[in-house]
Amino acid sequence: MWVKQISIFLENKSGRLAAVTRLLADHGFNIRALSIADTSDFGILRLIVNDPARAYQVLKDAGFTVSETEVLAVEMPDRPGGLAGVLDLLNEAGINIEYLYAFVSKSAENALVLLKVENLEKAAGVLTANGVTIQGHNIVHQI
């Protein structure tokens, strides 16, 4: 149901991001979305790929520190303030968003945003009850 995400620990120095993307390309992975959160010393690279379980193994075997997490793929209502509306709904329900980033899908009618919250179940419930569409992991396979 949820979208599976790969997180990788990276030191904040040149060439590390390139090393990951090259490795994944060499193994035929298609990176569908990506975000980086960093400090002056280190960063966390978050990726959505077509085969997360295999990507996890490939990265791990190459010596990276990796974890697999789940995020919520939320379809943005196609109107000004669409994102703000979604955030308001979660805020009112007392759900804290840890981070979010965009995901481009050719199949979904609207833009998608990937959300990391502590309780995915609860957040999905609040949003669907208010007419917001939640997408599953299958979106990463559709081009």
Binding site: A37, F42, G43, K60, V66, S67, Y99
Partner: peptide
Amino acid sequence: EVSEKVFADEVRRLE
């Protein structure tokens, strides 16, 4: 070295 055992997906937790 950050091992898988202590790695967290959030910057705040690593800090």
